[in-house]
Design a protein around this nucleic acid. Sequence first.
RNA 1: GCCGAAGUGGCGGAAUGGUAGACGCGGCAGUCUCAAAAACUGUUGAGGGGCAACCUUCGUGUCGGUUCGAGUCCGACCUUCGGCACCA
Length: 816
Amino acid sequence: MKSSLRYNPQEIEKKWREKWAADHIYEVREDDSRPKFYALTMFPYTSGDLHIGHWYAMAPSDVHARFKRMQGYNVLHPMGFDAFGLPAENTAISHGIHPYIWTMENIENMRRQLKSIGAIYDWNREVISCLPEYYKWTQWFFLKLYQAGLAYRGEAPVNWCPRCQTVLANEQVIGEGFCERCGAAVTKRDLEQWFFRITKYADELLDHSRIDWPERIEIMQKNWIGKSTGAEIAFGLEHKGVDAKEMRVFTTRADTIFGVTFFVLAPEHPLVPQLTTPEHKAEVEEYIFQTQRQTEFERTAVEKEKGGVFLGSYVINKLNGELVPIWIADYVLPGYGTGAVMGVPAHDQRDFEFAKKFELPIRVVIAPPDWAGEELESAYTESGTMVNSGQFDGLSSEQGVEAVCDYLQAKGWGKRAITYRLRDWLISRQRYWGAPIPIVYCDKCGIVPVPEKDLPVLLPPDAEFKPTGESPLKYCESFVNTTCPQCSSPARRETDTMDTFMCSSWYFLRYTSPEVDNNAFDDGKLKYWMPVDLYTGGAEHATMHLLYARFFVKAIRDMGLVDFDEPFVRLFNQGTIVYRGEKMSKSKGNVVTPDEYVAELGADAVRAYIMFIGPWEQGGEWSDSGIVGMSRWLNRVWNLVMADYSSKEIDPKVERELSRVTHKTIRKVTGDMERFRFNTMLAALMEFTNYLGWLWEEGVVSVLAWREAITNLLLLLAPTAPHLAEELWARVGHPYSIHNQSWPKWDEELTKEEEVTLVVQVNGKLRDKVTVPVSITEAEAKELALSRERVKAYVGDKEIGRILYVPRRLVNIVVG
RNA sequence: GCCGAAGUGGCGGAAUGGUAGACGCGGCAGUCUCAAAAACUGUUGAGGGGCAACCUUCGUGUCGGUUCGAGUCCGACCUUCGGCACCA
């Protein structure tokens, strides 16, 4: 089977891409006559080059989007660039290239690479987050959040990356206390910063019932938000020089309140200096100094031995009137709960270790089963029966929590409370390359938001890039000096810029109408397209981008700007592509660039190969030799379609078989497309071509039947190998374009077999196979099985017990 | 420590509780060629037997269990990878 013209991907891919662009066939507009489908892939950061990892995110999602398109959906599948961020500025510092120049050159290159994929991106809808026409609206949203009371300025101990020279949000500190971006160890600093009140939406963010997301991501978000239900309990305070008459703790175990033998504050707690008695002052100050020197990771390392010091003062446990010594210890975190805990060593492992080390009493108040008053070897943290707890003795832990809470509430000594691990989102960055925060500081008026009509607050092009730990904008006088929008007196601009996750929290809205310049988006178009039906991208964004974007949408929904609750109805996370056993990265020097493979084997081969590696959600290892196999297969498809088919003697049985194979293939490919099982989809198409190759040699079906099979093959191949399919579609004489055709449908009737291979087992072991018509009855099948020579040999003269029959599958003879 | 995912040929992987290893890579043999590459065809889990077509035993991380029958279900464990981790 040789054809005179060889498959030449370089030539045909260029030709069709140009024609598709010239004909605008992938441009999308709102159309009420078809169901819409918004298929979004996370937009890439403008790092400079697209590697195979990017293709792994983009090519399969394009294949799926093309599939939906052929199924009759009006598909929006846009692309853009996440263009603000630290690498651009770091390059400016190290190489003297302006971030804008660097970024726009990178975009130029990446756009070229993206186009080589052959995707259905409508480039009229491209968004670039670092351009004023985009970040004007990022700033506008900031003002909206500010007006809604969701953006505020506050002082807090914040994460500081010494290498990036900026603060980071909690979500951007990963693993054992490292910067998400550069990997440096993060430290804490007390700074006044801008925050978004994401904690206001903590409960709603815990609710994933309205979205179809991988369970694993939902769990990660739930863990991150970390909701704890318990009580806030007041301990009495009588200390000269301290006005407060009580201090509160948060606990999930109100039932253990009678077991409190000490009280621990975070070293940062504001009352610590006043509660320290003179004779403990030196020791306390030394301990606080040591605590502050530690990184977050060192401080929270689980293995670390408990440390702490006594302040010399006491609180009163109001339930039993006991005096309880106040300590400070670094295992108590300033940002969680009230920054104070009650020490119940008998029923909390940390408190237990602390008490052992400092020889504090350990009092059992929850009796373990079969407890006879002996000392505990470790904390008993399970439920049990309350003992040594006054009027609460005899209650179970569960009853005890309720009873103690009721009692506290009645006495006014406490209340039921909920605490979250989630912190407010810290969004200010001491860097240049981001959207300026649209705020002005006036000596008379204080914090003044920039009026909407004055947006955008433009980044000055002439700032100096030095890693000083402060925003370069701070030293740019033309930027800083302004007048107060309220009173017109001289004022200073905010010089911090916004976290780039702010830009990516709304870009999916902008794709619906990127052309509008008097609003962030067009209401009608937004209503048509949103929410996103399918969002695909990496799982590493679980507690960052994906959480922020959900918060953002809920916040603007409450402002009445949108009318949906969730931005992304369905989420799918593709796996990671690795090379030489490691995730691709420039620093490891194992980046595989798609360009050379595209140049040599064609984009279609690269698209198909990365989908063939394995299930999309699992990722896999890139293999140079593997892709050759894919290229070979596409060549075989070419040769098969291009070869002249002539029929010899027609065999009706084979014609029926061809129809059956075709319809089964359509069914398999359709199902696999829907489930993102592209690897098995391709295997099915390969099997189909292998079968057609055999059939071509045989020549026992009519020319018409042959052509129909080829037509279906091309349609099924079109999403995966759009260029090749288009070329062959034209060459076999079909009208342009294959990408405007309908997805083939299968007829279930035609997939039914005429004959099946029955497996014959004796005691569950395969002993024989026999081909039978599907119409065979159970009795006939059993009789046939028993009559087989091979079966007789295994049965011998043993007694025959049950005979199991699974229609169309097997007969299993059980012998004694 | 807790939560989640995964362990199948030389490799990537496939298998509604019913023929384990589809499909592909690699290997081997062959066709073509002066030769090589490319392409194409055949073959390829391991062990044992047979001149042969074939026959046979073992085999899906480990150990148990359920079942006529387990890669698949249940229990316990081991390993790898991801996430969280002094959160009161």
